[in-house]
Amino acid sequence: MSTTDNATTTTERSKPLGNAAKAAQGDGRAGNRDAGRKPTTTILVTAILAIVALYFLVPVYWVVINATKSTEDLFATSGFWFGENFQLWENIKAVLSANGGIFPRWGLNSMLYSGVGSLLATYFSVAAGYALAKYRFRGRKLVYGLVLGGVLVPGTAVALPLFFMFSSIGITNTYWAVLIPSLVSPFGLFLASIYAGAAVPDELLEAGRIDGVGELGLFHRLALPQLTPAIVTILLFQFVAIWNNYMLPLVMLADEKLYPITLGLDNWRAQTDRLPEFYQLTTTGALLSVIPLAILILVLQRFWRGGLTEGSVKG
């Protein structure tokens, strides 16, 4: 997986020390042709990239600064700098204890929906993708077509009938109502089948069969390890997709105690109209909920790239 290796190198390149030299030596193919770049070009390009970076960082910067303020300072002092009082810890305490500690519960709910949902969804879609890639059987094309159709149908279009279906079996307003629909990742199936087609050699499976390994054993013991990069990508993709989902929990859940963090924060934000103190709770709550995902995204960035390449190159 040359892309993944490449990503590792480029991540290391981000250390400013000796950067120019390294870039000139070339850590990848793109680097070579630019060996003779003029320093003015470097400054210009870096300046453009820095300005763009400012744009991407402004809301994050704003929330970090303003989570430290009191409600009065939030309105009275400039949003781009700290207020009179630094009360980040008080604000965090207020967020964690508001409504009898509902915020940590929302966080745990989000972890549950995203964690359990993405683990199972990944296992299901990798197994199915592997089956589609490595077996020739009747109905294979049909399944492919069905799933392709599923990818193109907007998820929100199914939310309404799903609501009626779930309410007729009485599982709306329960954890299941959000968890069950999160278990399916058609995108993951495609990624897994493309990846399995390339990364799991038929000879490997044949050798396993000769050794008397069962079909499920072949998948679990021989294929899965080969599929690790795809698994990580699907897992991350699905985790973020569930974490970000808004319409499904909005439609399914009525009880605040079952809310994921997104819906909960939205509920707080909606109260700011009448109760300005909720501005501060929402701001600090937003900061707290951005941190874990931001870390996840930054640390695992290279996996996105590895998997997505497979999806786009061959897809």
Binding site: F163, F166, S167, G170, T172, N173, M252, A254, D255
Partner: peptide, 9 residues
């Protein structure tokens, strides 16, 4: 309305 439709609320 969705809470009522779901039998709760």
């Amino acid at each position: 309305l969705s809470a009522v439709a779901a039998g709760g609320g």
